[in-house]
Simulated scan of single mutants.
Amino acid sequence: MNMKGLNTWGFKAYPTENKNIIEYVGIDAPKNRMKSYLILPGIYVMFITLGQKYVAHDSDYNGRFGYRIAYCYEGNYYTHINDTKVLITREIFVGKSIPKSLESYSTNDRTTAFNIVIAPKELDKTLDYYKIIDKFIKISRSIKDIGIILNNKELLFVANQLIDNLKKEDLFLITLKTLELIYIITKENINEIRKKYYQENNTEDMIEIERFISNNLDLDINLDLICKKFKISKSYLNNNFMRKFQYTPIKYLNNIRMIKAENYLINTNMEITDIAEKIGFKNPSNFSRSFKKFTGISPSKYRKNNKD
């Protein structure tokens, strides 16, 4: 039997006493929960808490088109925006919101995240908040499927505050922190960031480079090695790789290594030093620092949290 609507995302909706708040429970994975808040006309905040690995294919729900601000406090997940695969992690993702996806999946059993969806057709232009949202829409209007990544400390601090208030279910502070986050994004130099992402280019060689990186996590890969192997310049490599895969090659390599480390920590009893070596870190201390920056906690605490 073919599933339709919200079921294609793997969730069932449960209305609450407050008509602006809806809870969602995983159909096949009841530990997977979401809670949606309509905080203002046209602005929705979805709090995502996945307790089991999540995967959905060919999702298509008659939802809202517009813009998305996404952030993972714990864990990571991939999703598709049209034909483009994007990674949501501990950085702020700003991109399109579309109610369908070729595939979405988390990289481990525990994920805590939020999605802010701004639906332009539902906004109330007479309210004071509209000035902030209108500016956000204007700078985001030409955004492409790959979106953009923002990671300044102020943004991340407010994103973590928003997560805290979502956990406490404090609707007033959820609203306040969501608007503050959007306001800070409008202060970013989005046009300069877009220039790095959006110039047209031939990406066939970037696909080959991505394959080389993904298949050789244990090697001491650096820009010089990649440029020499593929006979290209560093500026060409960085700029074109980012336009295809969201991140520079070295940042992409580190993300893939950290996701691999998460899986080793959860699914094996390997020593942390052995995991570090297996994914290309000669120095376990460097691995621990990178892992904590990526996940927010140390490898040992991550293992403990995911095996409790």
Rank of each mutant, 00 (worst) to 15 (best):
300 S>Q: 09
147 G>F: 01
49 T>S: 11
3 M>Q: 15
228 K>V: 04
188 E>C: 03
15 P>N: 05
166 L>I: 02
100 K>L: 09
93 F>S: 06
159 A>Q: 04
56 A>K: 12
176 L>C: 04
191 N>W: 08
108 N>R: 04
301 K>Q: 14
278 K>N: 13
42 G>K: 03
93 F>M: 10
154 E>S: 11
174 I>N: 00
181 L>M: 11
244 K>M: 04
148 I>Q: 00
305 N>H: 14
255 N>D: 12
256 I>R: 06
26 G>A: 10
197 Y>F: 07
58 D>S: 12
302 Y>A: 10
258 M>C: 07
270 M>L: 15
150 L>F: 03
300 S>Y: 10
266 I>S: 08
193 I>Q: 05
115 N>A: 05
161 Q>S: 13
243 R>W: 03
74 E>P: 08
243 R>D: 01
21 I>M: 06
47 F>E: 13
88 I>E: 00
217 L>G: 05
55 V>M: 13
290 S>L: 08
136 F>C: 00
76 N>R: 14
288 S>Y: 09
233 S>W: 03
186 T>F: 02
150 L>M: 03
51 G>F: 06
274 D>Q: 15
280 G>L: 09
262 E>F: 04
230 F>N: 00
190 I>G: 05
306 N>Y: 09
138 K>Q: 10
285 S>F: 12
140 S>V: 02
27 I>W: 04
44 Y>V: 02
88 I>C: 01
168 K>W: 01
265 L>E: 02
67 Y>W: 05
127 L>T: 06
213 I>D: 00
238 N>L: 03
56 A>G: 13
82 N>W: 07
213 I>Q: 00
193 I>P: 01
281 F>H: 02
181 L>K: 00
29 A>Q: 13
165 N>H: 09
142 S>T: 12
134 D>S: 11
192 E>V: 08
231 K>W: 10
261 A>L: 03
97 S>V: 01
65 F>C: 12
170 D>C: 07
70 A>Q: 09
67 Y>A: 01
258 M>R: 01
